[in-house]
Design a protein around this nucleic acid. Structure first.
Lengths: 139, 139
DNA sequence: CTTGACCTTCCCGCGCAGTGGAACGTCTAC
DNA sequence: GTAGACGTTCCACTGCGCGGGAAGGTCAAG
């Protein structure tokens, strides 16, 4: 099948498919005499894996590592398990950061209800957001 | 004071200060005859506001809006309150997304412990991550 | 033969918040 | 007068995941 059919079958644009190939996340397919890419049926499954892994929040870089591990040394299950565990850890940290940030933003919003706009000196931009409160950067 | 002193006093690099000015988040300061930027004391406070607002997770675009509202029509408190409320809402949504994603990743990790690597067909990349499970996209 | 759908490669752009470096001007101390 | 610490501008690059469009080649139908 050609790239257009693969795109239609997988729901991924031809642009994205070529991008994945260039990024190393999909192997370079065979070419027809015309230069057109020629895909076999497995390409649909590989593409489905890429989308599933993306839906799990993995980056293309991480997926590329999984795919090349698979190509070099068989099923990369342990690698994938480690990756998922590590990913779960970073999700937890990120959630904790955002939760702390949410609490901080809520404090500011609440604080605003007790302040008088007239008390806002021109030298400040807005006294609702005070300097150096040690908020967690959202990186 | 010159830009280097402002940088030292505020803990922000000269690069970032010039970047803020170009982005419209800081007003263009006066210039000396040499062309050097000349800052008054209020610049330190404006910069502190920018950093505090960033620590609260606001983007430079949002901060720019607050600053220009301040310049055009006095204390932007209501604007800021609305902004914070809206920001809290998007933080909540983001946290919910990431929490759902974390649950999904945990399910995958757990599932991996019940699978046999030998069962992983070559046509798949890795059977730990199955296709089309309807995971929430992380963006 | 020509039209139109498909394919190829290529580079540019987005949004975000800067950082790095080049090439050059300025000020201060010795 | 010269070293070096500071300042100025501009352009490029980072990571992420593509999308848009140009300029051209290929293939089937009418």
């Amino acid at each position: 099948m050609r790239i257009g059919q693969l795109a239609a079958a997988s729901g991924v644009t031809t642009k994205a498919i070529r991008f994945y190939e260039k990024a190393g996340v999909l192997p370079a397919p065979a070419r027809q005499a015309s230069g057109y890419r020629q895909y076999d049926h497995g390409a649909i499954e590989r593409l489905a894996f890429v989308r599933a892994a993306q839906a799990a929040g993995l980056t293309l870089r991480q997926i590329t590592d999984v795919v090349s591990a698979r190509e070099n040394s068989g099923p990369p299950c342990q690698h994938v398990v480690d990756l998922l565990e590590q990913h779960a850890g970073s999700l937890e940290r990120r959630i904790a950061e955002l939760t702390a940030l949410l609490a901080q933003v809520r404090r500011l919003g609440h604080r605003a209800t007790t302040l008088d706009p007239a008390q806002c000196h021109p030298s400040q931009v807005c006294h609702v957001i005070p300097p150096s409160d040690g908020g967690t950067p959202s990186s």
